[in-house]
């Protein structure tokens, strides 16, 4: 039983990192219908911004957090204005490729700026680095912080979409872009805001995750693909689904590693996803679905 609870906890804490990426993907997808393949790279890039502020320039932790989120937001807006705006109406394949292009640009830039500073840069945790006992189980406090952060970000954005005017506008745009235009909503602004918000989430996520994951220019892809998996399991447009999906991917990995074989850890979530999508083509947690023709 102790084995199970350790594996479960290990899975949940890793899953929280995936959830952090998945939430960003869902916020963008929810209002634009696009999957931002550069989400993992935004996560990486903002992490380095925070590192530069906090470790290199020695500024306080909150400033690093602000640097990462604001930096992320601006990065999202700039890329949207430069590239995605022109693309909003293009083919999905083209759009996917453009976000992949952005991912390459970010990765290359990060390698150029920070790539020569060491192999994996460490980032100090906000919490105490010493593991603490919770019941019978030892945990690293930063892992709890990441989990709490994921849930907090999820709640903030769920409230944003449900209660604020802009949030409602964004949802309306996603539901029916043409109708939204008819009632005077600027789709372009909605898209810009969505990309900005998605990137800002990546920034916040990066600050929470960096002490656990270390920073390196190529960290983005594995986070993106796990985050994408989590978002799809959660139904692509559901914020709570993204969190549950993320935790699920983490727990599957951990359990597969603990009970089957550690070589299965990497592949287990993907095997499961193939199965899930065959049985349930729009994700595990999607219930109310409409199909337009």
């Amino acid at each position: 039983m102790l084995l199970f609870s350790y594996l479960l906890l290990g899975g949940i804490t890793t899953g929280a990192l995936y959830a952090l990426v998945a939430i960003g993907l869902v916020v963008v997808n929810k209002s634009t219908g696009i999957i931002n393949f550069a989400q993992g790279e935004l996560f990486m890039f903002c992490g380095f911004l925070a590192w530069m502020t906090h470790v290199q320039f020695g500024l306080a932790y909150p400033l690093a957090f602000i640097a990462a989120t604001v930096g992320g937001f601006l990065l999202g807006i700039v890329t949207d204005r430069l590239a995605f705006r022109a693309l909003a109406k293009t083919d999905i394949v083209g759009l996917v490729l453009a976000t992949v292009g952005l991912a390459f640009v970010l990765r290359g830039t990060a390698r150029m700026i920070w790539g020569g500073k060491g192999d994996y840069l460490s980032f100090p945790p906000i919490t105490s680095p010493e593991p603490v006992m919770i019941g019978d189980i030892m945990v690293v406090p930063q892992q709890m912080a990441a989990l709490a952060g994921a849930i907090a970000i999820m709640l903030v954005f769920a409230a944003f979409f449900r209660f604020t005017r802009i949030g409602k506008i964004m949802r309306a745009t996603a539901d029916n872009a043409k109708a939204a235009t008819l009632v005077g909503i600027s789709i372009q602004n909605v898209y810009t805001l969505a990309f900005g918000a998605g990137a800002a989430i990546a920034g916040a996520a990066a600050v929470l995750a960096a002490p656990l994951t270390l920073l390196y220019p190529d960290m983005g892809f594995s986070f993106f693909i796990k985050g994408f998996a989590a978002a799809v399991l959660g139904g692509l447009t559901s914020l709570s689904g993204a969190v549950v999906g993320g935790l699920l991917v983490g727990v599957i990995e951990s359990m597969a590693g603990g009970y089957i074989d550690s070589s299965m850890m990497e592949v287990a979530p993907f095997l499961l996803i193939m199965l899930v999508l065959i049985i349930c083509p729009t994700g595990l947690l999607s219930l109310h679905k409409t199909r337009d023709v």
């Binding site: 590239a83 693309l87 083209g94 992949v100 292009g101 991912a103 390459f104 290359g108 390698r111 150029m112």
Partner: peptide, 20 residues
């Protein structure tokens, strides 16, 4: 040299944007 990723990514974005 060393900037391939940036240039390659940029080329992709430019191409998709201007030669849809």
């Amino acid at each position: 040299k060393g900037a391939q990723e940036i240039v390659f990514g940029g080329v992709l974005i430019l191409f998709v944007t201007f030669f849809r």
